[in-house]
Amino acid sequence: MPHTLIKLKDPTLLLTADPLPVWTEKILNLTSYVIVRRGEQQDRIPVGIRGFQKSQRFGTWIHPDNWLAAVTPQQALQYLPKLSSTRRQLKPFQTLDAITPLLKTYEWGVGGSLAYELVTGIEMARPESDVDVIMTLPKQRITPHEAQHLIAELRTIMGAHADIQMVQGQYGFSLEEYAAQRTAEILVKTNEGPILSQDPWQLMTEMDD
């Protein structure tokens, strides 16, 4: 599923026509973890390699057998106690600790640079890094009003924007957009590209996973 970190069996076996940027080699020498991207997964799994710079992102594919371990956003949280006390004092990790009690009734995890650092041990998070919350769509619908309340609570801890992505399989939408109700339709990211939906909750609840 998207946002899951997977450890490659053989990091040199990437299915790509484009030449690999030089920085990817450096990072793959440090870790063999890559991040699953959205997209069709029939014969190959779309993955992304991330570097230390924000502009260093490279999309490629792997053979469905070329992996040893997978860590979901939810499982990435279990690595928090292993983080050194110095790194744990970094602002985004503090934020992550602070929002945990608010989200205890939900199935959620963390993505982005925080998940990457937690799992690989590579110091990827920065003081200004975003906390990307990945939440499994709850069976019980959260009304836009309830979502507004949760977003407001999270904002007091996370700052101006609370980036909560509601996911089901490969589908995902922003809880902030759902709560704001500024437009009749909400953007839903899918394996076949983004779509607009009047009721993403309904759409994703009806999905077979």
């Binding site: 993505g111 990307d132 924007h161 980036d163 922003s174 902030e176 500024r182």
Partner: peptide
């Protein structure tokens, strides 16, 4: 008019 959100990949 204002659409979209401040979120990764958006």
């Amino acid at each position: 008019v204002h659409v979209g959100v401040v979120a990764s990949g958006d």
